[in-house]
Structure formats: C-alpha cells, structure tokens
Amino acid sequence: ACPQALRVPSELLTQSVLLSHRATCHPRAEDLQGHRWATFSREEICAYQSQPTAEMWQRCARRVTEAIERVVEFAKRLRGFLELSQHDQIVLLKAGAMEVVLVRMCRAFDAATRTVLFEGKLAGPELFRSLGCPELVASIFDLAQGLSALRCSESELGLLSALLLVNAGRPWLQDRPRVARLQGHLDVAFRVLLRRTRREGLLARLPSPGRLRALCSQHLEQVQAFRRLHPGVVSAAFPPLYRELFA
C-alpha cells in the first residue's frame, strides 16, 4: 500500500510504525484536528472529587488498562516484535507499556487550558484529587504539557513509542542482541525522519529516559501506598492486567 517512491527501508519502517500507531491510538488522529471536546463543568469536577478514593483509583486503573491494551496491540503490529521470544516480548512490554501510555497522553492534552482528555471530556489535575496522589498527577500533567509543546507529528510519536518499547537496555532480556538490532533499525528510521523534516532539534528536547522511568516508579509507589491504605481492593476490583503489571 506504500507509494513506489518509498523504497528506502527506513522510510518503509517509518510508514509501518505510523500505521500501527494510528491504528492503536485513542483518540484517533482524525479526531485531534480541531477537536470539539467539552471541558468538565464545575459540577462534574465536584462529582469526581467526591468519589471515594478506592472508586476513583479503580476508575483510573480501568482507563490505564484500556490504554495499555492498545499499546500491547501496537507492539504486536511492530515489525519484528513478534519475532522476539515470548519472554522478551513480555519483558519489554512490562517495562515500557506505561511509558508509552504516558507519552501518548500528550496527543489529547490541551495546552491552552492545561487539561487532558479523560472519559470523553477535558480534565485538569484537580479532577483527580480523590486519588490522593497530587505529586504523581502533577508530574504526569507536567510531562504531557512539555511533550505537547514539542508539537510532535504522529510519525514522531509512533517512532518514539516504538523506541520506548524496543529497548535493548531493559533488564532480564534473553536475546539482547536481537532486540538491539530491531532498536537500531527504529533508531535509524527516527533519525532519517528528523533529518528529512528538519526536526533534529527535537532530540535534545525530549524527556530523558530517567524522567519517564522515575514517573513509572512514582506510579508503582502510589499503587503500593494505595494497597496499604485499602487492602483487598486491588485484588478484588482492579483489572487483572493492571494487577499483573503494577501490583
């Protein structure tokens, strides 16, 4: 389905990654252009803020899980990913899926109002008050705001996401050279894209790997803190995939 002009392997890879990214993102790229999402009203915000902590955590865990499932589907569509061993596919997804979810968030971030799309409308950080983890929420919004300011194209986000997943530096990989080879192809494709579009300056402005890792660690810490305060809720009421990855 690619035009004849795209014979260079890295261009083909970029197209393939873009297709996988578009097919597995929500909201879809078409819905981002000139979006007409409403902002939550005062009453709606109060309603969310009045929810018991355990309920709000469960609600957010469900939304995160839906996003993770889309990232798993993205990974499966990445050329070469399914050729890795099952073990390494699991290692890479366990380590990288949340990072991709966090990066993808910037697509549905409205910089003018500092809100993010949540359950169909735009929400500011205060909506999540009942979670009881204001620093984590603030860090996530800061990340989304910073990424949003970079005005990344869907191709850039697709390749960035692929590189977050296909990371030969993750611990416990069985066949590190194989992952490194795939990572190398994606890395070249990304650099070729940036050169072609004169966006090489993007590299220095991206969040550092350490920052994303710290954010994911913060999330894990908050899950543990929540479990201590609300024993049994995670086991009884959280999505199984969320428990498997984070609890």
């Binding site: 499932e69 569509r77 399914l82 699991i90 997804l93 199984p240 995939l241 498997e244």
Partner: peptide, 16 residues
C-alpha cells in the same frame, strides 16, 4: 510467562 498470564495471552491472541 507464568507471572504474566494475561500479557502472555494477549500476545498469543491473534487479533492483529
């Protein structure tokens, strides 16, 4: 794979 049955199942599931 034993500790990640759901992830394993999602990866096996051929719905791409």
């Amino acid at each position: 794979q034993e500790k990640h049955r759901i992830l394993h199942k999602l990866l096996q599931n051929g719905n791409s």
